[in-house]
Computed example of a mutant assay.
Amino acid sequence: MKPLFKNIIAVIAGWLTGSAVNMGFITLGHSIYPIEGLDPNDMEAFAQVMPTLDAQYFTFPFLAHALGTLVGAIIAALIAANHKMKFALAIGVLFLLGGIAINIMLPGPLWFTALDIIIAYIPMAFIGGKIALSFTKN
């Protein structure tokens, strides 16, 4: 397979896999910490209730963002034909853009936004790239 196609597949597979992990944790979080009377699909109602939520309600969103990025970066780096760390970091940038967007649409407490933006994306993508590189050197 040509490196270009392999690299395109790496980004798509990393993005889709990371997104699936992300959604799995979000869904799990809603089942463990349900918000009474709130439809999690109603973004307007969700945006109104976000500032009133305790820290426990932000555990699973953070895990979703961080672990989704980590897994997506690992997958992308494992599949990429070359420049594996760059592809892992590209997944981090994609998820970072999504994280910025969701933090604008559903503004939570400042501490969560800062933690999420600073730790959940680029550092996790870097760690994912390092993990993938450790597998490919064997």
Rank of each mutant, 00 (worst) to 15 (best):
G99T: 12
I8W: 08
L70V: 03
I32K: 10
F46Y: 15
Q48C: 02
P40A: 02
T113L: 00
M43H: 09
S31G: 04
G24N: 04
I74K: 01
P34K: 03
A76Q: 09
N103Q: 09
N82R: 06
I26F: 08
V49G: 07
S31H: 15
M23C: 06
G98K: 03
D42T: 13
D42Y: 00
A120I: 09
L115I: 02
N82L: 00
G98S: 08
S31I: 13
A47C: 06
F135Q: 08
I12C: 11
N22K: 14
G18E: 14
S31V: 13
F135H: 04
M124V: 00
E44Y: 14
I8Y: 07
A47D: 03
A101Y: 07
N41I: 05
A13T: 14
G24P: 07
T136V: 06
G14V: 09
Q56E: 09
M105A: 13
M1V: 15
I26D: 02
A64G: 08
L28P: 14
L16Y: 15
T69Y: 02
A132W: 09
I32F: 10
L78A: 00
S19W: 10
V71Y: 00
L53E: 00
S19D: 05
F126E: 12
G128T: 11
K86F: 09
Q48G: 14
I131A: 07
N7G: 08
P61N: 01
P123A: 13
F112C: 02
L4Q: 15
L106Y: 10
Y121Q: 11
F87Q: 03
G108H: 04
L110D: 03
L16T: 12
M124Y: 13
I32Q: 12
F25D: 06
D116W: 05
I127W: 10
L70E: 06
Q56R: 09
A132H: 09
M50S: 03
A66I: 05
T59E: 02
M43Q: 12
D39W: 06
L38K: 04
I35H: 07
L115E: 03
I100C: 04
I131V: 12
P3S: 14
L16E: 11
K84D: 02
I75K: 00
M124L: 15
L38G: 05
I9L: 11
F60A: 04
M105Q: 11
Y57T: 04
L133E: 12
L38P: 03
K86V: 03
A132D: 11
I32M: 14
L4V: 13
M23Q: 14
G14C: 08
I35G: 08
P61H: 00
G24C: 08
A88E: 08
W15D: 13
L106F: 12
K84A: 06
P34D: 09
P3E: 15
I75D: 01
D39P: 08
L115N: 05
G37N: 06
W111D: 00
G92I: 11
P107K: 09
F58K: 05
G128R: 05
G99C: 11
Y57G: 01
P107E: 05
L97H: 01
I91Y: 00
S31R: 15
K2Y: 12
